[in-house]
Amino acid sequence: MTIEIREARLDEAEVVHHTIRAAFAEYEGKLNPPSGALRETPQDLIANMERGGGSVLAWEEDTALGSATYRFSDPYMYIGRVAVCPGARGKGVCKLMLRYLEEKARLQEVFEARVGVRLSIPANIAMYQRLGYETIEHQFYPDRTDSWYVMSKKL
């Protein structure tokens, strides 16, 4: 399997949106509060791109396997909506997208990447830890039904 990671174009916002929906569908009705990823629209993704952020897509031939969004927030790159379609999980897609984005940050002379990871999804916390991310903050939703870690990796 050859996976290509590349920047998503504006006209691919629907593809990014589709991968996010496919990856986060398993959490629909299970997280409190619900994941904002399931409310996001292609227009939201385009707006992020127009503000200087963007998205990347992971492709195998003509099939989108995953996506991730990013934005620069001095002094770090925030990586969000990391989404791998269920059939592509376990194949290193997430790791490849993160490496691509981390290198993009370094090229912009940004030497820290951050992600937000819900505590109600402990497998994701463990995955980011394996990829070199460390917890730097513990944040709570207003109603305290769930919380998340802000995780950071020095680049």
Rank of each mutant, 00 (worst) to 15 (best):
R118T: 12
P122H: 09
H17L: 13
P33D: 04
S73A: 14
E4Y: 02
K30H: 08
R99H: 06
R71M: 10
N48Q: 13
W148Q: 13
E102A: 01
V117D: 06
R9N: 12
A83G: 05
E50P: 00
R9P: 00
E109R: 15
R89P: 08
K91A: 10
F111R: 14
R39H: 08
Y149T: 08
G87K: 11
E4G: 00
S67K: 04
W148L: 15
K104D: 00
Q139V: 12
M1N: 07
A68Y: 10
S55I: 01
G87T: 09
T63H: 06
R21T: 04
A64C: 14
I79D: 01
V93S: 05
Y141S: 14
Q108S: 15
G66K: 12
G54Y: 12
T41S: 13
T63S: 11
L10D: 08
P142K: 12
V82Y: 01
S35V: 04
G66H: 10
R99F: 02
V150S: 06
S73E: 15
G116W: 00
V84N: 06
D143N: 13
R118S: 10
G132E: 03
L131F: 10
V110A: 06
D74G: 03
E4I: 09
L38V: 09
Y76R: 14
G90A: 09
A25E: 15
M151H: 04
G92I: 09
E60T: 12
L38H: 07
